[in-house]
Design a protein around this nucleic acid. Structure first.
Lengths: 110, 110
DNA sequence: ATTTGTTATCGCAAATATACGATGAATAAA
DNA sequence: TTTATTCATCGTATATTTGCGATAACAAAT
C-alpha cells in the first residue's frame, strides 16, 4: 500500500505557520492587515473606500483573515468593526520568528 | 471607466512579502525549509527519502521555493545541492519583522 | 411595517495550485 | 557507446483561490 501526500500529518506549529502564511500571501490581505495594525480598527466600508475592488471581494478577504484568526470583527450595528486579533497576531509573529531562527548547531556546507 | 482589482499596484515590499508568504504557505515547503535551515544543505534525494510524496511533487515544491528566491540549487553531478538562499532568506525575515512591528503611534481602539 | 445603511453570502467564471505517473535531460561509470 | 543515477519537466486531473455582480441578512430609523 503506497503512501502519498494525503497521508502526511504535520506538526501543529508547521500546520499553523502554513495557515498564517497563506492568509498573508495576498497583497490585498497584507494591505488590510497593515492598515489595521498601523492605523486603527476600521469598518468594512473604510476599506472599500481605500481599496479599488468590489465590496464583496473585500468582504471575502476579511472572512479569510478572520478564519485564519488574524483579525476579529465586533458587531457595531449596522457596521462591523474589524481589529487585529492581538493574541493570534502575536502567535503568528512568534511562529515566523522561530521559522527564521537558525539553530545554533547548524552545519554550514555552502 | 470602472476600477477593478486588476488595476492595483502594490508597494514593492507588500508584493515581495506576499510572494514570500505564498512560498511559505504550504507545510511541505515549510518542512523543506526547516530541514535546510536547521540541519544542512541537502540533495533532492534526501528529501524524497524523508517526505512520503512523489519525487516529481517534491521537485515541483523545490522549484517554487527557488523561484521565490528562498533556496538555491548548486549542480553537483549527478545531483543538485539545495541550500537556503541566505541573502533572500534574511530579506524575508526582515520583511516579516516589519510586518509584525507595530508603529509607535498606533491608535488603539478595542 | 417599510425603508435605509452596512455587510455577508451566493452563484458563477477564470485562474492558479497541488499531486501524480511517465518521460526527458544530463552526467558519471562501465 | 551503453547503462545507471539523479533530478527536472510534461501532461493531466482535481481542488482551491480569486473576483465580480446580484442578492440576502440584519439592525436602526422612519
Amino acid at each position: 500500500m503506497k503512501r502519498t501526500a494525503q497521508d502526511i500529518s504535520y506538526s501543529d506549529d508547521t500546520a499553523q505557520t502554513a495557515r498564517f502564511a497563506k492568509a498573508l500571501s495576498h497583497p490585498v490581505r497584507l494591505t488590510i492587515l497593515k492598515y489595521l495594525n498601523n492605523q486603527s480598527c476600521c469598518f468594512t466600508g473604510d476599506l472599500v473606500e481605500v481599496l479599488p475592488m468590489a465590496q464583496s471581494t473585500i468582504s471575502q478577504h476579511l472572512k479569510e483573515l478572520k478564519e485564519a484568526g488574524l483579525i476579529q470583527g465586533d458587531v457595531n450595528p449596522p457596521r462591523i468593526k474589524y481589529c487585529i486579533h492581538q493574541k493570534n497576531w502575536n502567535k503568528a509573529q512568534e511562529l515566523f520568528e522561530v521559522l527564521f531562527n537558525k539553530d545554533f548547531d547548524k552545519i554550514s556546507c555552502c
